[in-house]
Amino acid sequence: MKETLFERQQQMMNYLLQGKPTIKDHIVQQGAITVDTRLHIYRNAYQQRLRETIDTDHPVTGVYIGDELFDQLVQQYTISYPSSYRSLRHFCDELPSFLADQEPFSEHPQIAELARFERLLLTVFDASDAPVIGLRELSGLKAPDWPNMKIQFHPSVRVFESPWNVVSVWQAIKDDLPPPNSLPSSEACLLWRNQQRMTEFVHLNLPELCMFREFRQGSSFAQVCEALLNVVPDDELSACAVNVLSKWAQHGLIGSLYGNE
């Protein structure tokens, strides 16, 4: 019974996505507007909407690659990855992997990395809300509870590690400055949404990255300190650990402490 409806919807989608013309035979010719024009209104809107979404979600990547490559990106990505999401918010979720795999973009791996950083900013932007603990709660932890103390980070907290200096490139373009040359580097950034719900990020030094990785995988403070010994001299360990934890608490990165239940 639903065969006609099914067929018509399939034909309409095939037209929108691939320009297949079979739907034309099922559209009424009315007045001065041709069937082609009527259909084109829909296809144009479809393509325009997806283009705007890529542009809105990845403005810096767009500027970085320039208009010509951006046109190519839009054309190839919208064909390769038609949206299977109900919200356009996720339409570009596969864009970084597309850019990493697809020529000519794959010839410049920093493009995919830049897009990956922009996606992560969006993830942080609408991650779950949750309470955080501040410096006072952290410093209120009793001495015997420190060794077993573990950290649950705020749901928005993410780390971005890249073999390219794309965060510096992103920042320069955002500030309307000429971007630095793309260079292989080992950048690591911590991203989070602050208490005013603004997205922030800072570069991580090696001790910070070490501590974040350890806490993230569920290590206790004692285990974190042990790992930290690989990158920090003995006599600086305590000061370094306390300093990093204080910074995280001040920035509102720590959701809760556990491990001493």
């Binding site: 989608m13 479809y46 038609p82 999401y85 109900r86 356009l88």
Partner: peptide, 15 residues
């Protein structure tokens, strides 16, 4: 708005 799990993100007319 779509079929076959593909979303056009448009409000497409029905017969």
């Amino acid at each position: 708005t779509g079929m076959g799990k593909i979303n056009s993100h448009d409000l497409l007319p029905l017969p």
